[in-house]
Design a protein around this nucleic acid. Structure first.
Lengths: 141, 141
DNA sequence: CCATTACATTAGAGTTAGTCGAACGCTAAC
DNA sequence: GTTAGCGTTCGACTAACTCTAATGTAATGG
């Protein structure tokens, strides 16, 4: 199967701009062109792009992803380095998920707090003492 | 309690550059200055910064956080809009965590795959057919 | 048959959220 | 009294997109 840049963008949930950016930066080396110079993508390119999206979404810089691609093309002798890269990315992603869960707890608290105010329609009693002053403004975040 | 910009940076796990950036962009309106024009932060500023860090880490743009701060300062009548903002952020964060878990599964697969190659020291048999050619290069990502 | 639509291309400018360097000021210590 | 160590401001730089403008080709439609 082969696909246009728009189809790929749709499939991968990224913009055509981003795909061109990755291609221009040498991260999609197997992408071919049709007779009008339009990019054509096959399933292998999709697979590659999927990895790029995965690594980017988990915070790997574009340059580092490029390096990873180079390693893959160099052959099996680079497996140990690739293993280390994926290990690092695994750990980074785990701690990112942990961090997000903590932030989510904070947000949940806010949601519940505001829901409570709306439901009971009573004034906010959690203003920190150093913010409680003559003003009637509700500065509680 | 009051703190220097370095102490705050340490406590919050962000750089002094970032703190100045937020302050310069009006997101820390209560921060005072000492007699040498140095920023001094109190516990309330820390609380605020904590919310900023939380919202940024979960993907809210700086401008939107600024708007949220404005709402807080406007008083209780803005609670419904704040509630909606936090609801949106809650959903966004939940789907971000879901996405990260999916990406993590992909990375886990790579880690296991490479670990297997290293352990058994045998060639990579998962090269997609369209990448398998005369070259000895191992193009398996 | 030629125009309009729809999509592609490129080069390059703009955006966001920092990140950093340079030039400088204050204060405390040797 | 000068050097170290903190802070300041302003402005330049970066990453990773994101978009605009100018241009080209291919299919549809009066």
């Amino acid at each position: 199967m082969s696909y246009t840049i728009h189809e790929v963008a749709q499939k991968m949930g990224i913009s055509t701009y981003t795909i061109r950016y990755y291609h221009d930066h040498g991260m999609l080396p197997f992408v071919k062109r049709d007779e009008n110079n339009n990019r054509i993508f096959d399933d292998n390119d999709l697979e590659w792009l999927n990895i790029i999206v995965c690594l980017r979404a988990t915070g790997m810089p574009v340059e580092r992803i490029h390096h990873y691609l180079d390693l893959v093309q160099e052959g099996e002798c680079t497996v140990p380095e690739r293993y280390e890269m994926m290990k690092t990315q695994q750990e980074r992603t785990l701690s990112e998920i942990t961090a997000l869960n903590k932030h989510l707890a904070t947000i949940n608290f806010k949601v519940d707090h505001y829901a409570d105010i709306i439901a009971n329609h009573k004034p906010d009693n959690f203003v920190p003492s150093n913010l409680r002053n003559a003003s009637t403004a509700d500065r509680t975040a």
